[in-house]
Computed example of a mutant assay.
Amino acid sequence: MDRSFHYLLMATQGLFQRQVMAELAGAGLTAGQPKVLDYLGLHDGSVQKDIALGCQIDPATLTGLLNRMEEKGLIQRRTEDGNRRSLHVYLTQLGWEKQREVRRTLDQLEQRVLSGLDEKQRAYLLEGLLRVCKELIDVEVLQ
């Protein structure tokens, strides 16, 4: 296995994502939907621009994803304060049920994956990933 940073980061993300989708196979969710449900669980009523940023999803891709989620009855989009230009996205009752299932799955998988690390190693890993994220955000903003 390649031990370079870029390979390990991409491989880890891909493996984790595949495992999440395998665990949620019976939930009727497609790729990208668990991430949006998880985000909305913390930020219900967000505008699409904030969801795209928070989930690191291209806005055009997110529009299609939200359309499919709305068709499945997971979300609803509403205007607020008479502003027709920005739609706020809310979880429906079914959406909240799926969000809780996603959250349980993510928590269980995280616990399983990190079980081989002690508390200090976990803290270092999370701090390192946070720093990498911040650096990448800074680089993206400068471009």
Results as ranks from 00 to 15, higher is better:
residue 132 V to F: 15
residue 116 G to V: 06
residue 100 R to W: 08
residue 8 L to G: 01
residue 71 E to M: 10
residue 57 I to W: 05
residue 19 Q to G: 08
residue 134 K to L: 13
residue 41 G to I: 02
residue 74 L to N: 00
residue 133 C to M: 15
residue 106 L to G: 01
residue 107 D to P: 03
residue 70 E to Q: 09
residue 121 Q to W: 00
residue 59 P to Y: 01
residue 63 T to H: 10
residue 72 K to V: 11
residue 37 L to F: 04
residue 59 P to G: 03
residue 66 L to V: 02
residue 3 R to M: 11
residue 121 Q to S: 12
residue 42 L to H: 12
residue 89 V to L: 04
residue 45 G to K: 02
residue 80 E to G: 01
residue 7 Y to N: 06
residue 8 L to E: 08
residue 58 D to G: 00
residue 42 L to Q: 15
residue 20 V to M: 06
residue 16 F to L: 10
residue 3 R to Y: 14
residue 122 R to P: 07
residue 52 A to S: 10
residue 115 S to P: 03
residue 75 I to Y: 05
residue 78 R to H: 10
residue 119 E to F: 03
residue 100 R to E: 14
residue 82 G to T: 07
residue 40 L to N: 02
residue 50 D to C: 04
residue 94 L to P: 14
residue 134 K to E: 15
residue 143 Q to C: 14
residue 8 L to F: 03
residue 136 L to E: 14
residue 34 P to N: 05
residue 57 I to T: 09
residue 133 C to P: 01
residue 35 K to N: 11
residue 4 S to M: 03
residue 80 E to W: 15
residue 82 G to D: 06
residue 16 F to R: 05
residue 16 F to T: 14
residue 137 I to H: 03
residue 32 G to P: 10
residue 29 L to H: 11
residue 139 V to C: 06
residue 27 A to N: 05
residue 56 Q to E: 14
residue 98 K to F: 05
residue 23 E to P: 05
residue 70 E to N: 11
residue 29 L to G: 01
residue 107 D to Y: 06
residue 76 Q to V: 15
residue 30 T to P: 00
residue 5 F to D: 13
residue 8 L to R: 06
residue 143 Q to V: 15
residue 68 R to K: 05
residue 9 L to C: 00
residue 43 H to P: 05
residue 135 E to Q: 04
residue 81 D to A: 13
residue 81 D to K: 06
